[in-house]
Write a protein that binds this DNA or RNA. Structure first.
Lengths: 97, 97
DNA sequence: TAAACTAGTTTACATTATAAACCAAATATT
DNA sequence: AATATTTGGTTTATAATGTAAACTAGTTTA
């Protein structure tokens, strides 16, 4: 009846991050921070979790003299997101039998 | 951009409970337990939280000789659920601009 | 050269979720 | 008729999670 919801995606901030990354080629840490309204510390932790799960790839470079963290969703991440959305529908659409 | 998701509903079990109660007049503890697959202890705690938030009403009676806990969603609960679903759509539908 | 800012990371604490242990009464077993 | 098991839960202790505050490392500005 209720498919289990991927706990890695069932978090407000991580879901927002994935939602953003579903729609762009890649994104900077600072841009994600602004779009989500997250604190830097929280975002750092959550990006790390998503990255460890291979839901996204993190690429650290320099933009001029400043450090820059680029994030990009992976195929695995895209699949997980799609699956999460599918599962969620059981919760928000269902009619009992 | 991202509306905040009611933390009381953003929990797998509580969301499943509310989802069930959206579709029935009322429901027994045991029925909810079976439908959700939750343990009794966890369900007890989560029902209590939803009840304290006035998202549902809990009515304790006896069914024959056994205790029976009946749950019914409130107007407040219905509104909160609808609002949650609306907010969620920002996360799962959006295209970045 | 000292203060303030950029771009993050680490860590300590608070919140949340959950299973295990418990309770009271009913029924089944020996 | 004791005792064990089941029903229908609640309480509580612990594990997992989320988050802000404090920190690192370097840059710009006054």
């Amino acid at each position: 009846m209720f498919k289990s919801l991927d706990p890695l995606l069932h978090s407000q901030l991580r879901l927002a991050v994935m939602s953003l990354l579903m729609n762009v080629e890649q994104a900077e840490f600072v841009w994600i921070k602004e779009k989500t309204g997250a604190t830097a510390g929280n975002l750092s932790v959550q990006l790390d979790k998503l990255s460890k799960a291979k839901y996204l790839e993190i690429n650290k470079k320099f933009k001029g003299k400043y450090p820059q963290t680029l994030c990009k969703i992976t195929k695995t991440g895209e699949k997980a997101f799609a699956e999460y959305v599918k599962s969620l529908k059981n919760y928000i659409d269902i009619k009992t039998d």
